[in-house]
Amino acid sequence: MLSLDKIYHASYVLKGVARKTDVLHAPKINPEANVYLKTENLQNTGSFKLRGAYYKISQLSEEEKKKGVIACSAGNHAQGVAFAATQNGIPSIICLPDGAPISKVEATKGYGAKVELVKGVYDDAYNRALELRDQCGYTFIHPFDDEDVIAGQGTIGLELLEQLPNLDAVVVPVGGGGLISGIAFAIKSLNPNVKVYGVQAEGAASMVQSLKEEQIIQLESVNTIADGIQVKEPGTHTFDLCQKYVDDIVTVSDDEVAGAILSLIENQKLITEGAGAVSVAAVMFNKVPVKGKNVVCILSGGNIDVTILSKVIERGLLKSGRSDTLVIQLEDKPGQLQGVSATIAQYGANVNSVYYEKASEGSNITDCVLRINLETRNFEHIKAVREGLTKAGFKLL
């Protein structure tokens, strides 16, 4: 049974293994709330997953340790299990979805685990891990639906109450629900007045759907840039704990997640993966009622694949009005481009790229199309530039 004593014991076991991560003030995230960030993205192995994995492995019998452990993961749990097993001198094998970021696959190998890539998503890797468990006698380390794992994640709740005594609310990323279950149980047991809100990606809202229908629901498919919380079905333990201890779970779009990642980079100098930024997205875009409250967002992980970081930043720029692409129909005669450039300069926008296309299908033979990507300040700035071009006689498509 999950208990407060077990969470305190996990905290004791994790001393010297898991960092007591800093809580940073972040007033620019939402000026209407007093926002703090719990920086589990700076945790050992790059995410909170180390806490639950290490505590679970520490509680195994000597016989179980000799046989080794197996796990499945989209990435972060894999690294936590690999690190914890290696630290304890235990062999480990990790099943990962074949679409997992290469950086996470290589990091898992780097912590000492044997990796098997499984075609599909997390749930497919999960089924393969169970097969190997039954065949070889490994102990399966579940990424979220295990009371020892949940207790390890709950140590974050103990730290928060110590670090922020006047805490009003905590906002937590949710995939399978292990992190929020542990945090909610710890916090509600010690201070039931603190609100606990969960956040899922719109493309993987399994816990939201399950709570709405009051039974565990398995989604047919999941798709989100927040790959760390891309889970089709919540766990039995986590579903029950969320029902009892979590105040609400909301969803955010991938565009909102991208905006949150960009904001954290620019304003806080912090790198988070998609799953780690959903809590910030919820507060930035007012998905949770935290106006005037002391609220902490859990940055659950920082292991973003650098190959997609530029794409995420580009989406974040678009979402926040920092970038815009204009399509302008012009007459093909001298001076047109100069006129467009002068108008854009007048309104203080910066040109990133220009594409000039003559005689496109469906246009007059004397017309051309100009595509310009602009760097802008916000949506109001975009509106002003577009209106200025229209007033100057240019036709925007």
Rank of each mutant, 00 (worst) to 15 (best):
K6I: 15
K6C: 14
K6Q: 13
K6A: 14
Y8A: 12
Y8S: 13
Y8D: 13
H9G: 10
A10E: 11
A10R: 10
S11W: 01
S11P: 00
Y12N: 12
Y12D: 13
Y12R: 14
V13F: 15
L14C: 09
L14D: 12
K15I: 12
K15Y: 15
G16H: 14
G16M: 14
G16R: 13
G16V: 14
V17D: 12
V17G: 10
V17H: 13
A18I: 05
A18T: 07
R19T: 12
R19I: 05
R19C: 08
R19H: 15
R19S: 13
K20G: 09
K20N: 14
K20H: 12
T21N: 06
D22R: 12
V23H: 07
V23T: 13
V23Q: 08
V23M: 10
V23P: 06
V23D: 09
L24K: 03
L24D: 04
L24Q: 07
H25Y: 07
P27F: 05
P27V: 02
K28N: 11
K28D: 08
K28L: 10
K28C: 06
K28I: 00
I29M: 03
I29E: 00
I29F: 01
I29D: 00
N30C: 02
N30F: 06
P31N: 01
E32T: 07
E32Y: 05
E32W: 02
A33M: 03
A33W: 08
A33K: 02
V35E: 03
V35A: 04
V35S: 00
Y36C: 04
Y36W: 10
Y36N: 01
L37Q: 01
L37D: 00
L37P: 02
L37T: 00
K38M: 07
K38T: 09
K38P: 13
K38D: 07
T39Y: 08
T39W: 06
